[in-house]
């Protein structure tokens, strides 16, 4: 397998490094505010969920939600500005690089950024003493899977989009409903059975299940099926995105 896509990962990494401080502050401060605000504020009303403080339950969901958001923002907004506004993709294609190299580069880079965002939540969880010991670190590969999954799906939107406005549909019609369906902010088993079935068809519920299972020790109903769902969505996404980008750029 060729590694040319790593040049594009390198490009994105070098740009990110220039904006390291604001980027890290956003990575840490944003989720901290959410977690502490919702966790303690809403937690005071909710009390406990499945026998432990709401903030602990929420933190398990936020691990996924933050990873999803980061992968999506990078692949959609930053990806689209490199594809269309800045013509960065076009420039790279004049060198001995292919459309697939560029799409794979965006995909892997968005997933790396997503892992960083998810890791920031994990760090906060350690800081707030919501998790202990080394066992919760096993969630890191799941964060990578989640990142690859949602970056892959987002890249389909990126390669279809004609303007930034298009992404509103994706958020309103797909991501926001999925976030409320998938057991991020409240337990999935509180939903009607039909909605639970829908939720288990979507990747986020599987991500939340794996993340809580590994970070908090919750029971995981179908761990390998969950992995398979994330991998399938991610690979399908990046494959379709690659085809769409090829059609778009080699017209």
């Amino acid at each position: 397998m060729n590694r040319r896509f790593l040049y594009f990962v390198e490009r994105n990494f070098l740009v990110w490094r220039k904006l390291l401080i604001p980027s890290l502050v956003a990575n840490l401060a944003d989720p901290l505010i959410y977690l502490v605000g919702l966790g303690f504020g809403l937690g005071a009303l909710v009390g406990t969920v499945d026998g432990r403080p709401y903030i602990t339950f929420l933190a398990g969901g936020m691990l996924c939600y933050s990873t999803l958001n980061s992968a999506t923002a990078e692949a959609l907004y930053s990806g689209f500005s490199r594809l269309k506004v800045q013509r960065t993709w076009e420039g790279v294609l004049h060198a001995p690089m292919t459309v697939t190299d560029v799409v794979l580069g965006e995909w892997v880079w968005a997933a790396i950024k997503a892992v960083l965002s998810g890791s920031a939540i994990l760090l906060i969880m350690y800081g707030l003493r919501l998790v202990h010991g080394f066992a919760p670190l096993t969630v890191l590969p799941v964060l990578l899977l989640l990142g690859l999954c949602f970056a892959g799906v987002a890249l389909v939107m990126t390669t279809l989009a004609r303007s930034y406005d298009f992404f509103t549909y994706y958020f309103t019609l797909a991501l926001t409903p999925m976030s409320f369906l998938s057991g991020v902010f409240f337990p999935l088993h509180n939903l009607p059975a039909a909605l639970q079935t829908v939720a288990w068809c979507l990747p986020l519920a599987h991500g939340a299940s794996l993340a809580r299972g590994l970070a908090l020790g919750d029971p995981m109903p179908w761990p390998w099926l969950s992995v398979l769902v994330l991998v399938t969505y991610g690979l399908a996404g990046v494959t379709i995105a690659s085809r769409l980008a090829y059609r778009r750029l080699t017209k």
């Binding site: 040319r4 040049y7 390198e10 490009r11 070098l14 740009v15 220039k18 800045q86 013509r87 960065t88 076009e90 420039g91 790279v92 004049h94 060198a95 001995p96 690089m97």
Partner: peptide
């Protein structure tokens, strides 16, 4: 394309990089 250079009709320099960084990064490709 390893033996080819391209000056496109519309500039697609990388605005996230400086002048030098543009040249170095492009060589990496």
């Amino acid at each position: 394309r390893y033996r080819v250079g391209v000056v496109p009709q519309f500039d697609n320099l990388d605005p996230d990089f400086t002048v030098t960084e543009n040249l170095v990064m492009y060589a990496r490709y």
